[in-house]
Design a protein around this nucleic acid. Structure first.
Lengths: 232, 232
DNA sequence: TATATCAGACAAGCAGACAATCTGCTGAAC
DNA sequence: GTTCAGCAGATTGTCTGCTTGTCTGATATA
């Protein structure tokens, strides 16, 4: 954490990136719902930029899987079927398990210390039950530290992608009553295993964490999922 | 394989996709080398389309990691360091292992039969040592069948991505003398394990296959890699 | 009722223009 | 001779207007 602040303003430019992030968070926040069409001209007006920037940002989101573009009809927010969600969680468990193992085996002491702090922050946020955004923030930070410490940029990239798509589900396991303390315990287990440099255990703990989350999310999904929208 | 041909012409449109594929294969073929700048106007002339299409296609490739865009300087073909290549092969082994296991456990009999054919084709192409393109074609087909049968679209997506980026290395393990028969044997092992419905063995076989390929590729890379180009 | 046709909506794509920024070079000051 | 300011060229970033192709739904007709 010693060298990250000098060059940050360097990439601040490019309107396109701003639009991209704007749209991404709007989708994550549920402002645009899955299946909703995203009409270029409307977005131009709402965001206040030209069509070029909008189109290119949409192309980026399309590549990430957040929006689906139907030729000559335009982009819409991707929807995700029950089955896809299941697959998604499978891959996520696989990758996070790998990240956990890699962290345990190769992470620096500094990384581990930072992870410890992240766990504490999360626990603190969980205790203060009425600050949801802080909770989400804390959890994101935990994952960021975990993925950075794992030292594999591809895993990080892919997990970020998967994470974005999971937000499409609008189902966080944390929204379920009683899950919160479970989450805290699970993150704690991950941290313990990593601190002990036990790769196997860290991998298993990460996977268990995701699998538990998946179970909760999929149950909720199944209940609310009459049938999925037809594939493109 | 019974229902894939009626709707294929349906997506033939969108100039952007054509440009995208054109560029992708040009990069894969080594026509554009890592580090080379891609100037929009030149591409417009070479391909014969407007700047819009070029830019959007480049955006897609950027998201895939094939090109890197430096703000106000433009896109260039991504280069990949030795260390990144190592990470890349790690993830690939992880994901292909998963795919192999999933195929063994959930693949249909039809899928398995098709995989068998793919293996045979590859072996035949390997025997005829002077048809390189057929060899590459056969190998791609094997992977395509493998990933399809695994039944996880995210894994497939990610592996496709990784595969594209590996071509950036311009180092195929198959280019090494003597590796070819090894490859054939390894694919055979994968097929055997899957046919026996032995998930563990299939997973291990896939991982071993990638690890062997990685070893060869990384050795070659290390020899030719004085130092990597500076990160963006 | 069912089919055919038409109009509107909208993305796909092109062309041209201007602004912002990077890069390298020239020339002047020390 | 070295260093730095400043200028010019190159190239992307962004906007705008326009044309074309395609889809959707409504209207008209058999």
């Amino acid at each position: 954490m010693a060298d990250f602040n000098l060059q940050v303003p360097r990439q601040a430019a490019t309107l396109r990136l701003l639009v991209e992030n704007k749209l991404r968070s709007a989708i994550a926040a549920g402002h645009f719902k899955p299946g909703q069409r995203l009409i270029e001209r409307e977005l131009c007006e709402q965001i206040g930029v030209g069509r070029t920037s909008i189109r290119e940002a949409l192309r980026q989101l399309e590549a990430e899987g957040l929006v689906t573009t139907i030729p000559h009809r335009g982009p819409e927010v991707s929807s995700i079927t029950y089955d896809e969600a299941r697959q998604l969680y499978q891959v996520r468990a696989l990758l996070e398990g790998f990240a956990g193992r890699a962290f345990a085996e190769n992470g620096s002491e500094d990384d581990i210390a930072e992870l410890g702090e992240a766990v504490e922050h999360f626990a603190a946020a969980a205790a203060d039950s009425n600050d949801r955004s802080a909770l989400i923030e804390a959890k994101s930070h935990f994952y960021a530290v975990l993925m950075d410490g794992a030292g594999n940029m591809f895993v990080k990239q892919m997990l970020t992608l998967l994470h974005n798509r999971i937000t499409l589900l609008r189902v966080t396991s944390m929204t379920q009553p009683g899950r919160l303390s479970g989450s805290v315990a699970e993150l704690g287990e991950i941290y313990d295993a990593i601190r002990a440099r036990d790769g196997e255990r860290a991998c298993a703990a990460c996977q268990r964490h995701i699998e538990t989350a998946a179970q909760v999310a999929l149950t909720v999904l199944k209940a609310s999922d009459k049938q999925a929208s037809p594939r493109r």
